[in-house]
Structure formats: C-alpha cells, structure tokens
Design a protein around this nucleic acid. Structure first.
Lengths: 190, 190
DNA sequence: ATAAATCCTTGATTTTTATCAAGAGCAATA
DNA sequence: TATTGCTCTTGATAAAAATCAAGGATTTAT
C-alpha cells in the first residue's frame, strides 16, 4: 500500500474500499526541486498536498524577517488552509527545503471528493479537529513555557528534523532567535 | 429570531428551515452562577455550549499558575473540543466569570444532528476551519510580536472585554505577566 | 459598617531573550 | 583551489519581560 494510502487511512479513518480508491485516484504526483515554491504569499492556494518525501517550509515574510510557521515532512499534509478553503490570497509561502515528492489534490478534485464520498466531510472534520488541538497545545506552550522548555518539547516530538533542516528555521517556528536556540543547545549538551 | 439562531446562521451558514429547527430544538437553556464551573480538568466534556449572555473563562491549571486559554463572551461557542470529540479527559476548566446564560448541546444531541442534518458535518467543518485559522494567527502573534503589539492587536478586536473581566486573565491569555500588562497600559495612555 | 479578599499599580531587581558583531566550519561553485 | 555563501556559535551588550514586594483601591462578605 502506498504511503499516501496509509496516511489517508490513519489520518482520516478508513473509508470503504471504493471511496478510498476514489480519493486516491484524484491525487497527482509531483516533484519539487529544492528551493522551489509550492505557494507564494498573495497567490491563491489551489491545492492541498501530501508529502511523500522531502521537506517543505511554510513561512510568513515580514518586513524584518521571515517567520517559519511550520515544516512539513514525509507523511504530512500541507496547504494554506484559509486560502485553500475560502479562496483568499495566501498569507504564507511554502518552499521546498530539499527535493520533494508530493501528491497534490486540486481544489476541483477536493470538491469532487466532497460530493462523491459521503463520509468525506466528517472524516475531514475529524482531521481538522486534530490539527486544531495541536495548535491549541502550541499556543499553550507560548503562554506557559520558557524558550528552553519549548525547545525540549519540540525536540522530543521532532528529533528527525534537527539534522535535516537549518536550525534557524526551527528556532523561528519555536518563537526564538537563532542565537538563543544555539545557546539552549549548548547548555543541554552538558 | 433568537441570538442562538442568528449565530448558528452566521457561523455555520444557513441550513434550510427544517434543519435549522432540528438544530435549535436540541439546545437546552441553562444558567450558570458566577464562579461555577461548566467543566473541570479531568472530567469528560460532554457538551458544547453557546453563550447567550455572560462570560466564561477557559483555563489550564499548572503547578505555579493558571493559564487562561480564552474568554468566551456573548455569541461564542465554548467547549474543550478535544475532550468533547474524542471523549478524553479534559485538559482545561471552564468557569463563569459572571452569571451566565448558555444553550447547551449534549454529545448525544450533537451526534443526532450529525445523523439527521445532512449538511451538518460540512457546516461544522467550515466553522472549525475558521477557528483553526484564528489559532494560526494567534501563534503568529507569539512568533513575531512583542507583548505590547499583542496587547494592541487584542485590544482592537476585544475592547469590550477590558472593562468586563479581571485584566490579569487577559494578560494570561496574551502570554504576559499582569505587571507587564499593567505597564503597557500605562505607557499607552500617554 | 467593618473586615477580608481581590485586583491593579508601581518600584526595584533579576532573569530571559534579542540584538549586534565577529569568526569558524562547511558546502557549493567558479 | 580559491571564493563565495550559508549556517552556526560565541561574546558583549541592550532590551524585554518576569519576579518580588508593597501599597492603594474596590468589591465582597460577615
């Protein structure tokens, strides 16, 4: 079974075989070169992508610096949800940190799934609720933890990332400067 | 038309009259005294509530202090979504800051709506996506703004709250100490 | 009405984190 | 191979925010 199929089942629950086949059939395979953009700020995000392999960084450019919102890795879905669903200009860019393989679902095909697969909205709802809960936890980490504590929590969950992406991006998504990040690492290695 | 009915329409879109009637009929009116709990940490959250009037504070108790996650006011829905949906112990408490009137939807009735109202899951999905996007913005505020900037953004959106709830709770939900909050206010009044 | 709580403010101090600046290590490139 | 970018580290300093402590104001309870 493909990685994508596995992930659909594990994220969305197991629809019946026929529906799963329908869902699978509308994803399109695509390769993105390192440094290329899947989405740029201001564009309309017309697709939702599943990462088959590689790494994608979502970030929001601001006047003084880029804010890394998240880094998507193998097995993740990525999109600007707001732009994709409500068809508004995207507030973020998505760029490949390495050569990346994705399965892409266009807005048209996404809508088709909604019409053709009766459980879809419900499955999707559960999926989004899980994402929502993760964001709640992330906010909690900013309300109650120091930079070092956020570092530790993130490190426990995402060790792999630490030797795959520039650490400055992880610092940014944790809400601290690269220098602070570096010093925390130095401290912990003792 | 009732406040609840208005809000259902504006948050969830307009289902047909019959469905709207079905939805409305399963909410139960309830009064909560100031200081009383709608939900306590560790309990299973069995309901989703609409605030008809009054104020509810959601917070997470930690060893050294309570972290206010959000304050719900007239027209808001409130619940521990994770606990309600996945039937896990709640990680937060919900307490009334004033005498409060709510319309409550039990998990059973919530499920009934899902079965009886065909568009329900889709409407709900849109609703949750909007909540998700709000959390994304809140995270962004912690990644890129100072305490004072977060204060200003929040103040613009939620002026009413500033003369209705203890300011320390607002400080907490913005991720700063009450003293910092107080000093920011002093600074701004000049 | 008085006492007790709660809440906000303010000052002094400490801690945390950001900023600035420089340099080292490494990889890509010409 | 030399050069150019990156990336990370480190130190020095500055700024932001937390903590500690006290006092005043207001609300709530007795």
């Amino acid at each position: 079974m493909s990685e994508l199929e596995e992930s659909i089942k594990s994220y969305f629950g197991v629809p019946n075989e026929e529906n799963l086949a329908t869902i699978m059939s509308v994803f399109e395979f695509q390769k993105i070169k390192k440094g290329a953009f899947l989405l740029k700020v201001g564009e309309y995000c017309r697709s939702l992508s599943f990462v088959q392999s590689g790494l994608l960084r979502m970030y929001i450019p601001t006047p003084d610096k880029d804010i890394t919102q998240w880094i998507s890795t193998t097995g993740d879905f990525t999109t600007d949800l707001s732009s994709f669903i409500f068809e508004t200009p995207s507030r973020l860019s998505i760029q490949a940190l390495t050569d990346t393989e994705i399965f892409t679902l266009s807005k048209e095909n996404y809508n088709r799934i909604g019409n053709e697969v009766s459980e879809w909205h419900e499955l999707e709802k559960f999926f989004i609720i899980r994402c929502f809960v993760m964001l709640e936890e992330r906010i909690f980490s900013h309300l109650s933890m120091t930079a070092e504590e956020r570092y530790n929590v993130f490190f426990e969950k995402h060790r792999e990332l630490f030797h795959q992406v520039p650490l400055q991006y992880i610092a940014s998504l944790l809400g601290m400067s690269p220098e602070t990040f570096s010093r925390i690492r130095k401290n912990l290695e003792k």
